[in-house]
Amino acid sequence: MAAEELTLQSHIQHHLTNAKMCSTENGIAFNKACSEAGFWTWHIDTLAWSIGLGILFLMIFRSAAKKAHTGVPGKMQCFIEMIIELVATNVRDTFHGKSKLIAPLALTIFVWVFLMNLMDLIPVDFLPAFAGWVGATFFGMDSHDVYMKIVPTTDLNMTAGLAIGVFLLMIGYSIRIKGVIGFIKELTLHPFSASNPVVQALLIPFNLLLELIALVAKPFSLALRLFGNLYAGEMIFILIGAIGLFQLPLHFVWAVFHILVIVLQAFVFMMLTIVYLSMASSESH
């Protein structure tokens, strides 16, 4: 009993661990050798899958863009243009103002996050087991030492990377539209303001605290929402995968439900990005 618990636990642990890479004095090291490296570690599975999927997205859309013409569109072009239209409509409705960046940004986020989330629907053991086999056969590693987490959005580094990118854009837009002074004013003179200058000066710290929390909460909520949803979904897939034969109907039900989650989370991330940037570039609250 104790042994079985241990293997189940280690099985789950194995699934939830990224493949790590870092450089030590002895050269490049992997996985357990990197436990000391701390911040200077790379999650090579997250990086490889996310960048690979990003390149896949860009290749598909680039080939469609090259073939784009104004005549009667083919099926592929129709499909791509449907996605473009969806993103363009949402951007038009939400973001008032002119920007060449917002729409491609939203498209990239939507499709890229969707593709990364989609990896969640691949049965949890397939690719890790295959990677373990490859590692054991060709590199002489213990297959338990080969880690492979194929859903990049279940890695907080991934979602935080996206959220920080959006956060930097928010600050950039705020400063570009309102100027540095305007941005500082926005952070210090709201929500409490007074006509008496002394009272106003007293209120500035409170305002700054509130506004900074509100500002920083945005990227945090973006990163944690996506990460939490996908991590939980992945976790349940792993648990279902561990219960034996009965996993099949359960797995099916959860996968069907998860299709919704995958699209929804990608869409929510895109929409919130547009909304935050729209708020950042509008004059008043």
Partner: peptide, 21 residues
């Protein structure tokens, strides 16, 4: 654990967005 991956993803994100744009 937050680590270098975040920086890598941030750079990848910026590159992808610029390419898309």
């Amino acid at each position: 654990n937050i680590n270098m991956t975040l920086i890598g993803e941030l750079i990848a994100f910026i590159v992808f967005v610029l390419f898309c744009m």
